[in-house]
Design a protein around this nucleic acid. Structure first.
Lengths: 175, 175
DNA sequence: TGTATATTCTAATAAAATAAGGCAAGAAGA
DNA sequence: TCTTCTTGCCTTATTTTATTAGAATATACA
């Protein structure tokens, strides 16, 4: 049970970050391994939870989500933490929720149809036990959106942890 | 050139949001159409930019990105806007960048290896022309992360725009 | 060094995607 | 209303891709 990631794994991750629907055959070409080998590596990456899931970026506006916002929430202590989390999971408007340092204890990334649905959502939040304050920033536009995980950067990250052991040129198959 | 989305399209989007690597054959099963029909719809969804790209969710920690943070940036007026954007696109640490209302003009979602790389990054930002102030919130944990685009909600969003016209039961094929 | 484990390959089989051609329903126009 | 054009879907045939099984090679460890 090797938990080691080598450069081939990182290239697979990088490639799939750019196009999550790449075929095994295309990945095999990129990393110069046979298709079954790539398939096995991919399974392992998912099994180990390094790859969590495959998803999609959509144009939210075209799907009728005209409002995106960040909502900073301040909740009082840990007493209401569990119920807060349950509420968060239930609300479809909340796409992401982060526990953070700084002003407020949480940041919510919210997506709704229009201002009136956002208003309803905000008043709902404010009724949750323990919620002391919210502070909303509307998203006017998104300047950058990347899922790219550079193999090179990950290699640098991991090598001082010694998680990443080797990259043997020998392993690469001739094409 | 029909730009209309029907419920079948929305089901395709919903399904791919949950698993972006679903096969055409599996999608065809879900929406009860033939494989070539689903393939054609999928092409069209991408061509129309409703589906922007296919990607992946990874476990950032396992890839050595131990620090995630939101950085609020205040830049002075629009004079430095263009150069700011260029910088943003260049920095690998910046995963997302939003132009927002409220305190500060932009929110950056940042991912780095450790506090020292974050520190370097922050001092780099502060040297960009026009950057007046930054305010960093560390992400302690992520409580929710969803890419699910519910077909039902999108239908509700779109029907008052009358973009969504029909859902004919007749169109569904027997299995 | 010897043994056990990992990873890879090839080849055969199964499954999936693509491409071509045709049919039917609905829209647009005479 | 009738005709034509377009759109969306189907089926079939072909090509491409993925899976499985088994053998070989390399790696790690005692």
């Amino acid at each position: 049970m090797s938990g080691h990631l080598d450069l081939i794994d990182l290239k697979i991750i990088e490639s799939l970050g750019e196009n999550g629907r790449l075929r095994l055959s295309e990945l095999a070409e990129v990393v110069a391994l046979s298709i079954p080998s790539v398939s096995e590596r991919l399974d392992k990456l998912q099994k180990n939870g390094i790859i969590r899931s495959f998803t999609m970026e959509v144009d939210e506006r075209q799907l009728g989500f005209d409002i995106q916002a960040f909502v900073r929430v301040r909740i009082d202590s840990s007493k209401h933490y569990k119920s807060f989390m349950e509420h968060v999971l239930q609300e479809d408007e909340i796409m992401e929720c982060f526990s953070v340092t700084g002003e407020g204890s949480h940041i919510l990334k919210v997506m709704t149809h229009n201002t009136s649905s956002l208003e309803k959502f905000l008043s709902r939040i404010q009724s949750w036990p323990g919620v002391l304050e919210t502070n909303t920033s509307f998203v006017l536009s998104q300047l950058k959106r990347t899922r790219k995980i550079s193999a090179e950067i990950v290699r640098n990250n991991l090598q001082d942890r010694q998680v990443l052991i080797t990259f043997d040129e020998k392993k690469s198959r001739k094409v």
